[in-house]
Design a protein around this nucleic acid. Structure first.
Lengths: 189, 189, 189, 189
DNA sequence: GCGTAAACGAGACGGTACGTCGTGTCTTGAT
DNA sequence: ATCAAGACACGACGTACCGTCTCGTTTACGC
């Protein structure tokens, strides 16, 4: 199958150590303070071993993101029956989960990473759960009759996540009322 | 009145040269490639002169942004009478205006700057015209009867700009149709 | 007799390829630019194969030197009958032969190698022909009556080669006159 | 006189610290183990500060050599009246002074440095005292009648230093007898 | 013939050092 | 007091080799 005729094989231990170190440092200090040297040291690995497999800091973070190492938990919208309440709760949770006392917020770090790295940008949308779980939740709301059958699910998701990013960038604290107003604007016919 | 006791006052020439250089380099190479040394050299100014008046690269860019040196032109939404068409055209124009062939796009650079600098984040929203001109356009649409009197203008603006940012980050080319769908989702509840 | 119980023996092809590659690269780029990785690549051989049989770069070069792979030709002093003329010519030839246009001179490379590696140091003297051919020539000069019977042949050789090295290190171009003066100082007491 | 119109000036403290560190590390570990990073660390200086003023390790060592920071003491030949005895003693002293238990010998390090750096090569000869003090000693021997008035002082010096280098490279321990024989070969008519 | 064990190519690995770039602070002499 | 110039300590960059270490493959002996 493969024409690899022997030779050493990529060290899985090193791979894991690097990704772990990346995730750990990313969470602890944010994307901007992430350095290849720091990762190498934290992972107990030679810098060259990183560069051998990843071209850049961005690629590393991108892979962590894809592997779900950067998100603290699954950000699935709740499904209590009332779409409005569910979305408000979900939005609020994302917002609160993604602030850390020490460094900059997780979202900000992700956005910073996305500006530098195409892959991260492409994955940002789906990583925030919009592509899958959010759309699912909206879909089921159509079943409930809480949304019109022709509701533009994708666009609602985009707008929601987009507003989230904008608020993160603006450092606007999102109180319950403003979140509710935003969501109403999107799902209220 | 003043307790300034001799010595030259702040050189206006230097101030202008620095802001000009910043804007020039920002436009040419993007926020990431912007360096204090580069700005100083481009402006024909000593580094210390920059640090004396601005605490950081971000502050510099922030001031440029506020002074309107970073935006190529006024991005005021057109006002032809049909809100939908106007918004689509406005959105499309922003999107197209803000790509540069060489480096990364202008929006991406602004977003990157915003992740690092609070001020820029706070100004990003209004700088993209949402705070003033966009809201005005929406307001006038209420007068037209194209929007309900209780339409949540602020939130529509947020969602619109937010979606714009998200698309910039995702590097999704926004074709006419997808833009239209997005705007429909927001103004045709 | 041997406790070798099967398995391939040392590959002569690899051995030759390695020594050839070493000599080739040494001649082309000098001792300083010689790298184990470069040799392995040039020889089409795994690095480990080199390390299996030679402990260091120096050992490799030392063996090349012993095998006569580094010297372009035999540097035997001529024997026209006049010792003085012969030595001048021999000295001059060594000097001129051992310059390469691109890198550093061959002698310099040998000296560099000798500073790092004891074996090369020990062999340097004889490799430059002093131990054998030069002493022979001096010996025959005693037969001619051109040198006293109790002339310190060994020491004359040392002084001659030593002066050669010093001039190589000093990058002093040796013109005919200065060479003649040096040799006169040694054989015309 | 100078057209230097203000601006910071080269830090003499840094310059001294760097040269001192270089000399210290050179003496302790030899030329091969000398690294720019090591020097910078030892001197408490940024690497860039070294590269700003010296292009290479060789240049640094060369300047130390010129400043007399590498030679443990003045290697002036004694002047007891008997040339032969004086030279033997001088030769022996140089030889013994320049062996250190830990690293490689000082001469070997100097030779290694000279192969890499032209300046060091040019200075090696005079640094070993040959150019000045040795020639002086020989000169005074002419006054004594211990050398012929037309004795080729320069060449004798070259041969002597050259032989010294060769012996250092060959790691030949120089016993009293062999040194005496060498010197006899050079100064005995 | 048939294991079996050394030698081989390939090349990944943890390291060390390289020479360069940008940071933010500082010092100097001129204006 | 502010300026242009630029040296400074610091931290990170991405690259080159080092010497060691697995991998599968390829022999050539001793049973």
């Amino acid at each position: 199958m493969s024409d690899h005729r022997g030779g050493p094989v990529r060290s899985e231990a090193a791979r894991i150590a690097i990704l772990d170190a990346t995730a750990r440092l990313f969470a602890a200090r944010g994307y901007d303070h992430l350095t290849m040297e720091g990762i190498a040291a934290e992972a107990g690995v030679a810098k060259q071993t990183i560069y051998r497999w990843w071209p850049s800091k961005g690629a590393l973070v991108s892979e962590c993101l894809l592997a779900g190492r950067l998100m603290p938990e699954r950000l699935v919208p709740p499904s209590t029956g009332d779409l409005r309440t569910d979305l408000v709760e979900w939005f609020t949770e994302i917002f609160s989960v993604m602030q850390r006392p020490d460094g900059e917020g997780l979202v900000l770090s992700l956005i910073a990473a996305a500006t530098e790295n195409v892959e991260i940008g492409k994955r940002l949308y789906e990583s925030l759960g919009a592509a899958s779980s959010l759309t699912e939740r909206l879909q089921s709301a159509i079943g409930d009759g809480q949304l019109r059958v022709d509701a533009p699910l994708e666009e609602i998701g985009e707008a929601l996540i987009g507003a989230l990013l904008l608020r993160a960038l603006s450092r606007n604290p999102s109180d319950l009322e403003s979140v509710t107003r935003l969501i109403d604007a999107l799902i209220r016919p």
